[in-house]
């Protein structure tokens, strides 16, 4: 009996093997999937960064060009409420952005002036550590990316981000987008989003939308590793602030005063 069972198993096994072997494969798979081509490995060589020249920014009052440009091309909805607000770039009074410079007797007049804040694209981003599905991660060129396809909406990254740069879609955003910009997807309810340094534009050798929109050239963008880049030249020999540098997140957005 034992021998016969073994015989049966051998034959069954061989049959299965025969079915899955190479000839079977050749019959079934008619078209081979072509390999996607590797683009030049330029990503790893760069490290994108941004500088905000506050004096230039303040020279035009109530200018919202950068916000409008960003929110328009990224289909950021205008929900009209503070509760569910979604924002990628927005103004915050100076004294709240840099609380360590809020000194009692300095008497500076710029404490109430608006400072444009957005995702700092930290070099050591806390949000990336917390995401349970790797829906947010740091690319080789330093951009902290969001994959809207993979976000499960746990909002742990929001708890991790000390800058409040992340927004959650509390409801379906589409009815609140005035005019959909086709080249960028809208989001569904229940996912987190934030500034992506316009990685979809960088890819086509365009500057980020906010940088391009700024009439005063207050924003400079470029490769931090390249001493000749716009951002490096803007930062050269200037007083530079970073947001909450003591937290060790190493922001790549610099403020110049």
């Amino acid at each position: 009996m034992e021998l016969k069972r073994r015989g049966f198993l051998t034959i069954a096994g061989l049959t299965l093997l025969g079915l899955t072997a190479k000839p079977g494969w050749d019959i079934f798979s008619k078209v081979e999937l072509p390999e996607p081509s590797p683009t030049p490995e330029r990503l790893a060589k760069k490290k994108w960064g941004m500088a905000v020249d506050l004096k230039k920014c303040w020279s035009l009052e109530k200018c919202k060009d950068c916000i409008d440009a960003c929110h328009r091309i990224h289909n950021v909805p205008d929900l009209g409420t503070l509760k569910e607000e979604i924002k990628w770039i927005w103004p915050v009074p100076f004294e709240k952005v840099f609380p360590e410079h809020e000194l009692e007797y300095s008497g500076e007049d710029y404490h109430q002036k608006p400072v444009m804040v957005f995702c700092n694209q930290c070099d050591d981003p806390p949000c990336v550590k917390y995401c349970p599905t790797r829906a947010t991660w740091k690319r080789k060129d330093g951009i902290v990316m969001m994959d809207f396809h993979r976000c499960i909406g746990c909002r742990y990254c929001m708890a991790g981000c000390p800058y409040g740069s992340r927004s959650f879609n509390w409801r379906d955003p589409r009815p609140f987008i005035k005019k959909v910009h086709l080249e960028f997807p809208t989001r569904t309810k229940g996912v987190v989003e934030k500034c992506n340094f316009c990685e979809e534009r960088l890819n086509r050798n365009l500057l980020p939308a906010c940088v391009e929109a700024c009439k005063e050239k207050a924003l400079s963008f470029g490769d931090l590793k390249d001493p000749g880049s716009d951002v490096r030249r803007a930062l050269y020999h200037r007083t530079i602030y970073q947001r909450l540098p003591e937290l060790g997140t190493k922001p790549k957005v610099y403020y110049i005063l």
């Binding site: 078209v31 072509p34 996607p36 081509s37 990503l43 994959d147 396809h149 890819n203």
Partner: peptide
Amino acid sequence: NHKDLLDDWKSSAIRKGRRTYVAS
């Protein structure tokens, strides 16, 4: 295979940053 193709495109473009597809 359009679904698989789009899926591959999605992960390749977003996650790997490779955006050029060389067709057969």
